[in-house]
Design a protein around this nucleic acid. Structure first.
Lengths: 339, 339
DNA sequence: GTCGTTGATGTAACCGTTTACACGTAACAA
DNA sequence: TTGTTACGTGTAAACGGTTACATCAACGAC
């Protein structure tokens, strides 16, 4: 007998199943004496309600699905940490699905009946493609997705962040910037590039785009071009920290002084950024807050229909603006020689 | 009409619900013509089976629960990545639960009926405490947990890893090793110390244990003792990379050549390890593999009862052996001066 | 023509909850 | 006394699937 059911408890407490359900769910109209008897019986049998059955009956699973691309490292864990924080507060559970390239196409639809809503991050999928895969009628919040989907949209304002960084570099004395872009087709990468290009144009400084792929090696490769003088630049702005760190190491290897000769900047503020020498200037995105906010928005959409105050639609779209974190790779300070 | 049910499909295809179920689940005894008609109807209505209902009927959810402590960074994401890889292969879903300090006590029991099994990592909980919270009769796999629980146990073989490192240091010419241990009470730290001590005894080299606390500062302090000659050693083996890096910096500061005068080694292979100069020799634990293996073991336990070949019990306990990653702090090479 | 056999399909019970509704009882007003 | 009301509790019908069993038609053997 693996587990007791509500009927076992009813028999044990000599009441009906309805009373057991009411007693355990804290209904009003239950005599205290009976409630106590039921609770006692439940405890005696080690009864735990069967979540699946309950969700079938309530048409509510108390779980939300998270659909993510194949992420690495800090970003992934911070996002989940933020989501979990909020999910716990709302007494929900998290069902995680990673969208690998091959599989995962019908995977999304299969979530019907298993979750009450979806937080989707699929920067590589088009709106139409995505819409086709989503189970109809499930509330959803989209993170950095193609625009125009039926649900709340939450994004990182990459363009504004990149622009802020370019402005900072210019203020720090840069006159020719090399931007190491992320992989083509990646929305974040595109937005950062566009923001950087626009800001450079506004500031009247030269900006050369070098193609990268978000990995360290490509940052290093770009740095080598700069070090050899193949590309004229007194600042190297990478679209993420991994590439910036790769570049930093490569520049050091080629005897280029940072930030004296070339300023270096990244994006994301991964933990490693403040540990490298010199410490990396970068844009910090509060990933945990992003995750928490996504869950919050979703939770609101889930209860909303019940409340009658639906007002859904793609109305609410929000953007998280990254914050500039100035460290040693862009400003000459007396801390330069230390640590 | 948010979503079609099996009855809608039955009506649309002019057959019974049983036939729909059989047709869609690939049963044998279904006339091809009827199967086609059902599939067509299902497609027309955009029917997707309701996971909750199905799991209630089948007594199988196709989901497994993952219970983790409040982890940060790389470890967390790598573990989940490994689990997801295996979970996808087994056509399961992942339900994530983070065990924060306060909450999460009844959280575990609430998973009944929502998952088919559990992967639990709760290094801070005692066996009894844990057992009390787990839903009875749920297959479970424990990661680095207290021993003696009913389920498979999977751990990192810290002792073997430490021993391997000591052997490597000896092979690299070390004759007197200083081991900077982690905080007392920490299981990983204890195991690493024990493994190092034993291996040194076997190899017939001296080994001095210096108490540390897993932070950089304690590594640096230990290094100072070695540099000053207060402790005789030609190799410094720290129980984690943070302390090793602290030691590395301190040795450099005291003009001690690494690895010529003192070899340095760490444990964990954090991302920073290959970025410091000289690059740190360390032990790499394949976290993703650990996660994948846990899911694999659990999946086996889940199907086993159905197969009749139960053979459960705490029988299978496995250990993942870390891999030695040799870099520049233990071997003099021509790469020494570079990067 | 009858009977058994076989294979495809339908009927209905079941999984474990929740809850609308029915019902019985007691308190109270007339 | 007799309605009315309010309240506590039980009965049974959902929720959306799966599947044991019943049913039925077609077929071949006698």
């Amino acid at each position: 007998m693996p587990n007791a059911t509500i009927r076992d408890v009813a028999r044990e407490a000599q009441v009906s199943v309805a009373s057991v359900s009411r007693a355990l769910n804290g209904h009003e109209r239950v005599r205290p004496e009976l409630r106590a008897r039921v609770q006692e019986a439940a405890a005696r049998l080690g009864y735990v309600p069967h979540a699946g059955a309950r969700s079938l009956s309530l048409a509510r699973t108390s779980a939300i699905g998270v659909v993510l691309p194949d992420l690495h490292g800090e970003f992934f864990s911070e996002l989940l940490r933020g989501m979990d924080r909020e999910v716990a507060a709302q007494k929900l559970a998290l069902l995680l699905t990673v969208l690998q390239d091959g599989r995962g196409l019908n995977t999304l639809a299969a979530l019907r009946g298993q979750v009450d809503g979806l937080v989707v991050m699929a920067p590589q999928l088009g709106a139409a493609e995505l819409r086709a895969q989503l189970p109809a009628g499930l509330p959803a919040v989209f993170l950095n997705c193609a625009p125009g989907l039926a649900g709340a949209a939450l994004r990182v304002d990459n363009a504004a962040g990149a622009a802020a960084m370019v402005e900072h570099l210019v203020a720090a004395g840069a006159r020719a910037i090399a931007h190491v872009a992320g992989p083509v087709g990646n929305v974040d990468a595109e937005e950062r590039r566009a923001g950087a290009v626009a800001a450079a144009a506004r500031a009247g400084v030269a900006l050369t785009v070098i193609q990268g792929d978000f990995n360290e090696a490509s940052g290093a490769a770009a740095a080598v071009q700069v070090a050899r003088g193949e590309i004229q630049a007194d600042a190297l702005f990478a679209a993420n920290d991994a590439m910036a760190i790769g570049a930093l190491v490569a520049l050091k290897g080629h005897g280029v002084a940072v930030p004296a000769q070339v300023r270096v900047a990244g994006f994301d503020d991964i933990p490693l950024a403040r540990l490298v020498t010199p410490a990396l200037t970068t844009m910090r995105v509060d990933i945990a807050a992003l995750g928490a906010r996504a869950v919050q928005l979703l939770a609101r959409r889930i209860v909303a229909p019940a409340e009658g105050l639906v007002e859904v639609g793609p109305a609410d779209a929000e953007a998280i603006v990254p914050r500039l974190v100035v460290r040693d790779t862009t400003t000459e300070t007396d801390r330069e020689r230390q640590s």
